[in-house]
Amino acid sequence: MSTHTGEGPDAGTRPAPFRPDLFAGAAFIVLGLAFAIGGAQYDVGSALRMGSGYVPIALGGTLTVLGLLVVVMAFRGGDPAIRDVVRPPVPWRRAGLLVAAILFFGFTVGGLGLGPTLLVTTFLAALAAPEVKPLRAALTAAGITALCLVVFVALLQLKLPLFGDWLGG
């Protein structure tokens, strides 16, 4: 993917641990342990009849070890592929809006129905655009909602109610 097709690994080293590798390694360790510990709740079984926990524990352990290796990498100069790529800060507000838009869709589409849910979801998503005014976002949302209704309800005839039970539909 394009992020780390950066300009090559030729630049110098950094003194402090390379933070992206530290984070990535930590994420792998946490997830690996979570799966391994979670897997230990299930029956491990034997080599003949492996239980439900056998494979998750083995893989979780492997991921933890790989995560440790990535952490070691962080202290030894970091991943050359991304070491010299300067990334802009994380767009927290925008990411929050997009995640909220998707979660809102999941939580309400059954109750509110497709129409109202889509309006709110697309409005939240449109607000995440750079330099956007609320009115503009609302117009975008209305347009996309109309398009989606035409495609999914009218053309594809998906069995999704336009208005759900919460609205007395």
Binding site: L98, A101, L114, T121, T122, A128, C148
Partner: peptide, 10 residues
């Protein structure tokens, strides 16, 4: 991108 979000969710 809002359209992608909407289409993908549906």
């Amino acid at each position: 991108f809002p359209a992608i979000i909407a289409f993908a969710s549906i």
